[in-house]
């Protein structure tokens, strides 16, 4: 126990390799594989043709059996490397297979059929990136629509979130008025009513407002987030009141104080909220699933889940669309990860 403790809580490294260092590195390297591995596997798979996807055991890279077209035969044939009886290897195309015997022809000499035991042949593999996995959803499916719906929801919801929440945070941090505590408590109480608790009545309200099957029905219920009000208010409390007094003496209206003094000074917190809001809205699933029932209104998340739940799952498209869905979030991760992690560590929000 104490050695485990020593490993976990020793703070300085130093003299040589302790076994605890080894465990640390196993944990870290293992973490690296477990955390990134699945996503990378998915990305790799998304470039495979349906045939390659159906293979077992699968290959790491998107290899496919090379095809040749042989004169006189309509469809392209698989190309194999065949070890002949004399030990010589030649490349032959497989015409058909009967039991353990494969009927093959030489592409350069299509007239003659050679019978080969299947143990004697090995497919000729080449790496192919099945870019049609990506191209086709963009042209033949509603995928572009979903993409656009997701972008619309994300951008509009984030903008409204920023404006509405920063105004509320301004009122709650810089004004004394009756009912301020009540307003704060109400907003705080929202933390206790997550979507899963109120989805039935919320659905009826959204329908009553005519927002069922409308992207606005997805956007509006999400924009008054209590967390948003809280981080902004917290930040605004650190802005000295004297600045506002100074602006009032400078003949600024309250609206000008809000957008010319408070907003620019809250920029760091607004940026954090904006990033969070983008990730939240991009990833939203349950609520869009409830509100949107018409195919052309689906967001990416809903579209993906519906497609993947179909009886005959077209994995090659699903994988490619999943990768596209991941891209914005991965970009956020790569460029803004440090920003987000300090944001979370500072405020404990997600």
């Amino acid at each position: 126990m104490s050695r485990v403790a020593q490993f976990l809580f020793r703070r300085k490294g130093g003299k040589g390799w302790h076994w605890t260092d080894i465990v640390t590195w196993i944990w870290l390297i293992g973490g690296l594989f477990i955390m990134f591995g699945p996503a990378i596997w998915l990305v790799g798979s998304s470039f495979k043709t349906p045939a390659a996807l159906a293979e077992f055991p699968p290959t790491i890279l998107p290899y496919v059996t090379q095809k040749v077209t042989v004169e006189g035969i309509d469809k392209p044939l698989d190309l194999y490397e065949v070890t002949l009886e004399g030990g010589k290897t030649v490349r032959l195309a497989e015409l058909r297979r009967i039991g353990v015997v494969s009927q093959m022809i030489d592409p350069s000499n299509p007239g003659e059929i050679i019978k080969v035991n299947i143990a004697q042949r090995k497919p000729v593999r080449e790496m192919t990136f099945a870019s049609e996995n990506y191209a086709e959803p963009f042209t033949h499916f509603d995928f572009v629509r979903y993409l656009w719906n997701s972008v619309f929801v994300t951008v509009v919801a984030t903008l409204i979130t920023l404006i509405v929440n920063s105004m509320a945070a301004f009122a709650l941090s810089k004004y004394e008025f009756r009912g301020r505590t009540v307003a704060m408590l109400l907003i705080l109480a929202t933390l206790m009513v997550p979507l899963s608790v109120i989805m039935v009545p919320l659905y009826s309200i959204v329908s009553a407002l005519g927002l069922f099957n409308s992207l606005w029905g997805v956007i509006l219920p999400t924009v008054a987030t209590p967390t948003g009000v809280f981080i902004l208010r917290q930040y605004m409390l650190t802005i000295p009141d004297e600045l506002i007094d100074a602006a009032r003496m400078d003949k600024a209206s309250e609206w000008q104080i809000y957008w010319r003094i408070i907003l620019p000074l809250t920029a760091p917190a607004l940026a954090v909220l904006a990033i969070f809001s983008v990730v939240w809205r991009w990833n939203d699933f349950l609520w869009p699933l409830i509100v949107l029932s018409r195919k052309e209104l689906y967001t990416l998340q809903v579209g993906l889940s519906i497609y993947s739940g179909e009886l005959n799952v077209q994995w090659h498209f699903i994988l490619a669309m999943t990768v596209v869905t991941m891209i914005p979030v991965v970009l956020v991760f790569i460029f803004l990860q440090r920003f987000i992690t300090t944001g979370i560590a500072g405020t404990g929000l997600k």
Partner: peptide, 27 residues
């Protein structure tokens, strides 16, 4: 705003996101 007075604050209350010129010009 309409009393025609000007005030110098203890913390100076200069707008941190504006240049000195903009600070002077704001009012």
């Amino acid at each position: 705003a309409d009393r025609g007075l000007a005030m110098v604050f203890q913390s100076y209350a200069l707008y941190p996101h504006m240049s000195v010129r903009q600070n002077l010009a704001f009012g």
